[in-house]
Each structure stands twice: as C-alpha cells, then as structure tokens.
Design a protein around this nucleic acid. Structure first.
Lengths: 194, 194
DNA sequence: TTAACTATACAGACCTGTCTGTATCGTAAG
DNA sequence: CTTACGATACAGACAGGTCTGTATAGTTAA
C-alpha cells in the first residue's frame, strides 16, 4: 500500500497540477493517464495510489482548481479595487483580465459539466456546488454595490457573467466582459432607484 | 466509390440523425463510430463514404442541428407569440420550453466548442458562425420590441441567454429562463426610456 | 450493369487499470 | 555502526477493451 494518506506529497502535487493544466488545455476526455504521468514525471502506480481512478483525479482537480480560481479573483480584484473603488467594477475588471490571459479556454467547471455527460458523475455535483458558491461570492459584491439585499439582481448578473465566459471562450475575444459589466451596472442602477 | 454524391440518402440521413442524438446526449468524444452505425443500422463503409472522417461528420451534424434549432424556435415562438403578442417574450417562452424538454443538456454548439479544444477545428468555426447568426436573430426580436436600433442592448441580452442556457444545463432546472427574461425586459425598458 | 449498401475482418493507436520489480529514503532495533 | 524495515516513488510490461479508418467480399434494387 502506500501514499494514500499523505495529502502532502510532491509527486501528488505534481500530478494534480499537471492534470489540471492538461484537462483545461485539451479537455478531460482527451487527456489520458499516460500523458499525465509522463508530463508530471511520475509513475503510474504513484498516480493510482493517490487517486484510485481517473474519476477521483477529476474531482480532485476540480477541487484544486476552485481554490486557484477564487485565489485569482481575490488577487485580481484587490488590484482593480484600488483603481475603481467599487467591488462590482473590480470583479468585471478581473473577469476581463482572465479572458485575456494566455490559454484562456472558458470556465473549467462549465467545461467539466459538458464533458461529464452523466449527471450523476461526482464531478457534476462538484460543478453544481461550485457554481452556487461562485454565485454567492458574486452576490456579495452586488449587494455591497447596491447597499442591501439584491437576490434577483445578483441572479441576473450571474447569468451575464456565465454568458460572458462562454461567449469569450467561443469567440476567443474578451469584449464580452465589458458588455456584461455595462449591463450589470444598468441593472444595478435600476435596482437602486426602485 | 459510392454514395458521396447523393446528399439525399436514407442511410446518410439515419446516420446524421443518430449521430446528432448521441453526440448531444453523451458528448462527441464519448460516442464512437461503431455505436453510431449500430444504432443507425448502417455499415461502417456507408458512413465513411458519406462522411470522410469523424470530423466531417461532426460538422455535418452541427449544420443539421442548426436547422433544427432554428426550426424549434420558429415553431415554439409562433405558439408563444399568440399568447404574449411580444416577440421578445415569446423567445424567452420558447427558451424555457427548451430547458424543460426531456433530455435537455445545454446548447450543442457551446458543448461542441468545449469538446473540440483545438481552436482551428472546423467545428469551432461553425460554432462561432452559428452563435453570430443566433445573436443576429435575437437582435431582430430585441429591436422589434424596443422599436429601433439596439445593438448594445441585444449584445447584453445575448449574454443573458447564453448564461441561462449553461446555467440551466448545470443545475438541471429551467428557472434561469425567467431570470434572464426579467433582466432582459428591464434592460429593454431602460433602453426605451433613454 | 452499376450504384448504394451491408457485413466482417483488420491495423495500429490509444484507453484505464493492474502487476512485478527496483531504487531511495528515514528510522528504529540490535 | 549496521542491519532491517516501512514508506514512497520510479520504470515498464501487460491485459482487455476502445478508438478511427481501411480493405474485401457479398447483396439489393433500379
């Protein structure tokens, strides 16, 4: 037996990062175990001792990516908040920055939901939960901007953001971020007046 | 050799419809040629005489699906327009109907863009073009509703729609259609006032 | 006769997951 | 000090199945 217990392991970390990169770049189904271990410089049994199956690895990668995504938004927003002084504006600034980052290929969670067609796949559950958490985070920025409860407004802005992500992926351009930002501000304006 | 010339062919049509159904249901990469011909009741060489490669079949399926999608919206909207008397409202009624239809698994074109990771894949080009056409159609409804040019408004509503589709797919529910509709109407209202 | 199709076998690559064996640590007992 | 051992990881072969695409031979119907 072996490494199953040590969640802290250099080989495990290398495998996780490599799988994350390859899954995002080329798709989950398009990337085989052999390629992951080759690029991670790990042995197959090392991978299988840390992750019992590819499905387990997929879920671990999604978990790992959620940390990094939230980390990216936190860091990018801190930068943008200084310029704009507005949390919601900073969020859309971070979004545009993401769209323009090299290798951008849409939202890994949206993509995973598409690739894992079986709705009972554990990865699909994780995606649903992640999107709930992401929408909650966004609602925080929205309510801060309008000063008070704004559930319906936040839901609408969430759709704008999801639509901007998938549109930026399909077009290969970032202008959807600005379109979503402008629409979100108009909706927020209206909500404040009411 | 063989059937390449006859675009009208029962076997070809059976293959196309079966591939469309399976690709949408289970994903493009998850469905092999063998399964398509088995369920279509066709021989492998018949498939390869009509479609030189799986990539060609994928593009043909996307082309075929665009016809059916536009046909669905046309038919569903005619039904909804009678009730609402408003083209934009009818569109969102059709959208909700689609989300609630059995086997709904998001937008086949969004999904294809995710699965065909290589941005130079001909299927990706088709998806880009289709989304342009779809957005154009939507812009027609928007401009009819506000009475005049409304390019920015139509772009924003397009993001709402794309976001609603992917959200409905991930959640497995249809309420995103109503959220998108309400936000679209508010934005349209604001655009009319201005 | 010939176009369109079926049926089947095949090549070669790739897939996930298992297996055996070896190398390298740190640590603990003698 | 050294022997022994468990933990971790590397290396590579292997099984059994899937994938796309091709080749060959036979069948049906106009």
């Amino acid at each position: 037996m072996a490494a199953k217990r040590t969640a802290t392991s250099e080989a495990r970390q290398r495998i996780l990062e490599t799988a994350d990169r390859l899954f995002y770049q080329d798709g989950i189904r398009a990337v085989g175990i052999d390629r992951i271990i080759a690029e991670a410089g790990a042995a197959k049994m090392t991978l299988y001792s840390h992750f019992p199956s590819k499905d387990d690895l997929i879920v671990a990668v999604l978990r790992y990516r959620e940390e990094r995504v939230l980390g990216f938004f936190q860091a990018a927003m801190e930068r943008h908040v200084e310029r704009t002084g507005n949390g919601l504006l900073a969020f859309f600034g971070a979004l545009e920055e993401w769209f323009e980052s090299p290798g951008f290929r849409g939202c890994a969670f949206q993509n995973a939901a598409v690739e894992l067609a079986d709705p009972s796949h554990p990865g699909r559950h994780f995606v649903r939960d992640h999107k709930r958490r992401f929408a909650e985070m966004l609602r925080g920025f929205v309510e801060e901007a309008v000063g008070g409860r704004a559930v319906a407004l936040a839901s609408a802005i969430s759709l704008l953001v999801e639509g901007a992500i998938v549109t930026a992926m399909i077009r290969g351009t970032s202008e959807a971020a600005g379109v979503a930002r402008d629409a979100a501000l108009k909706l927020a304006e209206q909500a404040k007046d009411a």
